[in-house]
Amino acid sequence: MVGILTEFGPGIWIADGPDVTAAAGFRYPTRMAVIRMSSGGLFVWSPTELTDAVRSEVDALGEVRFLIAPNSLHHVFLADWQRGYPDARVYASPGLREKRRDIRFDGDLGDRPAAEWAGDLDQVAMHGNRITTEIVFFHRASRTVLFTDLIQHFRPGWFKGWRALVARLDLMVAAEPSVPRKFRAAFTDRPAARTAIARVLAWPAEKVLIAHGEPVTEGGQALIRRAFRWLVDS
Results as ranks from 00 to 15, higher is better:
M1F: 09
L5T: 02
G11T: 03
I14M: 14
A15S: 14
A15T: 02
A24T: 00
G25K: 02
F26C: 01
T30W: 05
V34W: 03
I35S: 06
R36G: 11
S39A: 09
S46Q: 13
L61V: 04
R65F: 02
H74Q: 03
H74L: 03
H74G: 06
F77N: 08
D80G: 09
R89H: 06
Y91E: 04
Y91V: 06
S93H: 00
R101P: 03
F105G: 09
D106H: 15
G107L: 13
D108W: 02
D108K: 08
L109D: 10
R112M: 11
A114G: 15
A115W: 00
A115Y: 04
D120A: 09
D120L: 10
H127K: 13
N129V: 05
N129S: 13
I131V: 15
T133A: 12
F137I: 06
S142M: 05
L146K: 03
P156R: 12
A164N: 14
L165I: 12
V166Y: 14
R168E: 04
R168G: 04
D170P: 02
V173T: 09
A174R: 10
K182V: 11
K182P: 02
A186L: 10
F187C: 06
F187V: 13
P191E: 00
A193G: 06
T195C: 02
W203Q: 09
H212M: 11
E214S: 13
R226Y: 11
R226W: 07
A227W: 06
R229T: 14
R229S: 15
